[in-house]
Nucleic acid binder design. Sequence first.
DNA 1: GGACGGATGGAATGTCTGTTCCACATTGTA
DNA 2: TACAATGTGGAACAGACATTCCATCCGTCC
Lengths: 294, 294
Amino acid sequence: MIRSAAPCEVASPTVEVEERIGRASATLTPAERRVAEVVLEKPQLVAFGTVAELAEASGSGAATVVRLASKLGYDGFTGLQTSVQHALARQLRPAAERIREPAASDAIGRHLDLELDNVATTLRALDDGALTDLVQHLAAPTSRVFVLSGDASLGVARQFVAELHVLRDDVSLIDGNDVAVRRAVSLMRPTDVLVAIDLRRYDRWVIDTAREAQTHGVWCTAITDSLLSPLAAVAEHTFTVAAAGGGPFDSHVGTLALANVIVAALADRLRAEATDRLDRAEAAWRKGDALTDR
Amino acid sequence: MIRSAAPCEVASPTVEVEERIGRASATLTPAERRVAEVVLEKPQLVAFGTVAELAEASGSGAATVVRLASKLGYDGFTGLQTSVQHALARQLRPAAERIREPAASDAIGRHLDLELDNVATTLRALDDGALTDLVQHLAAPTSRVFVLSGDASLGVARQFVAELHVLRDDVSLIDGNDVAVRRAVSLMRPTDVLVAIDLRRYDRWVIDTAREAQTHGVWCTAITDSLLSPLAAVAEHTFTVAAAGGGPFDSHVGTLALANVIVAALADRLRAEATDRLDRAEAAWRKGDALTDR
DNA sequence: GGACGGATGGAATGTCTGTTCCACATTGTA
DNA sequence: TACAATGTGGAACAGACATTCCATCCGTCC
């Protein structure tokens, strides 16, 4: 049987160092061995710590630490530390960069990795408290919900609006020419809720509109690419999305995944009313025979 | 129902730092903002690097880096560095604790699993030959491209249309009332291309419209949930998508990922014309000062 | 039992890094 | 246009660090 030769390339934090320690383990003195054990068990201590800390953790002297590093073939402790740092950095790289290394296998696979990373990064960064707060505002029966989006994400925003609108009334997308947008904003009330969606290379009119809405006392949330986004400045909560694209455009897959979570959470909170609305829509479809299974 | 208070301790690489940057973002000077961007994008540089390196990476001086750290409330750069180190160390805690991540009993984790699966299933099922063929038809300069979508996926379809339209002319979404739709179909020609998007509980009008288009000799492609879909019957190629949703609606994350792949492939094939179109759009935006970085 | 060799940790040293201060540039304003 | 205020980076300074050297200790062999 030919076993695949260790396909798991993630490996432990310090492949390079482990190998050198294994190779030299026979020639290590007792004190050096204690240091080596700590290096293997707590790589962070090597990556972030100092010679003195590593010496204390292993119950030895600073000189022993440096001697071990030299014996392993490194240029002093600094060399060992650099090696461990590189290993750790490689392990926690956001996968978006990891992909470009292997000379891009097939196009579809590259997209797959990219989009998976977009979804994972976006949803892992999602703060539960902020989500709950947003949903609470979206669920308020007295509020009206407005969605504002840059041109690049307009389709996804429309998808978001459409699904929100199934769950509750008074959901609208702010869109159209300058006159229409300004009118819409001028009619906003402090009880209203705004969800603004825009990624870097921000549309100026979106930023301006969001700012204007905030001055009207509207409760704002931002879905954007960074906490340094101008949208974040006007928002109570900011949800950051990963949007690395394999083509000429940003990918809004992460944004849509986030939208799905928000919609699902809102549906959960509005269960009673939402199911009623869904049932009525269902009845209307059935009456008109609008849907079919085949 | 008492919601579990979501202890979810995973968090993103630098939750602490991110929060502080978001809070202070309004008071940051231009140079400080550049530094902050690097801090958010490359935490490793802060954790492993020095003030000088961070200064160079952000194109600013060492003093600015230290000032930013102080402004964020840290005790100098050292404090900022320590904070990032702690965050990174938490993130890469080996396997033992991270195994909980994919399991995920909380709502967000459930969505994460679902959406990852949607993307993976959809793109893994994507046939390279079919994709190439579709792109070839989409790239034909004599063809006109029509996109047809069920109501549930209309937003994603609009996103698809918008991006296609940046790459080439004559792309339109078939939408509107029955009269408008029938007129649009009646004017179709055998050289045209139709991409029909609809998932189970198919919209009858979408199926009918697609069939009608086919009788006009239009080259049809289906993006749907199954090869048994009625859309598949009229299509030259059928791309199946996974759309399991955590809420009351289907998730169109997989569909959007597929759309991204198609758009990217088309952009690749139309490189010359597409970049020209992108450049002209860019010039127009610049002239009107429509986009901004902050 | 004494002397030798290696191992070990403490202290001195020189380099590197973070911090602070100040002169210069840049922006906004009268 | 001139002035004021703020932003900004270079240079000096002080501290921390890795490194090296050396005295001490322990085990071993003669």
